[in-house]
């Protein structure tokens, strides 16, 4: 998990602010200038130092930065991998929201060692959803918020996403309310099940 997150932060900073900024973050965090590998294990300490260094370098709160990382992961035109995998969750944004409860299991199908926190979804009224995210990995919550906002855009849905009041939040203080105002507000981005090329025949 740390490897994937560190690599995501690295991709976001390098693409948005340039290699020099990312190089300064690595130096400030006492990390190797080679950066991070998504499939290699890293410890919580390295992760926290990188977050602190990013926050200082960009002069932005960690949560804001992580939310932008989430948006970047979906919206970066140079890397459609995550966006496409998430779009397999459903044909509409509401369908996609319902698939989020399966997300940890979908992730495990791809990477058996990946332990995503459990995601809970309740639809309290038509088009009004409450989302909660397990507490095992707090840094994922702002990333998930960014991913969710970018996915709504990708589906062309008009949504209001807000943190729920503390009284309604779960044990680690997270919880989102998602209000689906219009399913086809914008044009969204096209999603074809197939990437285009026809696999070899028999």
């Amino acid at each position: 998990m740390y490897g994937l997150l560190l690599r995501s932060i690295q991709a976001y900073l390098r693409a948005t602010f340039g290699a020099a900024v990312w190089g300064r973050v690595l130096r400030a965090a006492g990390q190797s200038p080679d950066g991070f590998e998504p499939m290699l294990p890293y410890d919580a300490d390295a992760f926290q130092r990188v977050l602190a260094a990013c926050s200082a370098e960009l002069d932005r709160p960690v949560e804001t930065m992580l939310e932008d990382v989430g948006t970047f992961l979906v919206a970066d035109p140079g890397n459609q991998g995550l966006r496409r995998l998430l779009r397999f969750g459903g044909a509409t944004f509401a369908d996609f929201l319902h698939s989020l409860e399966e997300l940890p299991d979908r992730a495990r199908l791809a990477l058996p060692d990946l332990e995503l926190p459990q995601i809970g979804l309740t639809e309290s009224a038509p088009g009004l959803f409450q989302l909660s995210c397990g507490c095992s990995f707090p840094a994922l919550f702002p990333v998930a918020l960014g991913v969710l906002r970018a996915m709504a855009d990708d589906y062309g849905a008009l949504v209001l996403i807000d943190p729920v009041p503390a009284a309604l939040a779960n044990a680690c203080g997270n919880g989102l309310s998602v209000q689906l105002l219009e399913t086809a507000h914008g044009s969204g981005n096209r999603f074809d099940l197939s990437k285009g090329e026809v696999p070899y025949g028999w």
Partner: peptide, 9 residues
């Protein structure tokens, strides 16, 4: 289809 694509990634 999801699994095939995740596998490629």
């Amino acid at each position: 289809l999801y699994l095939a694509e995740a596998n490629v990634v």
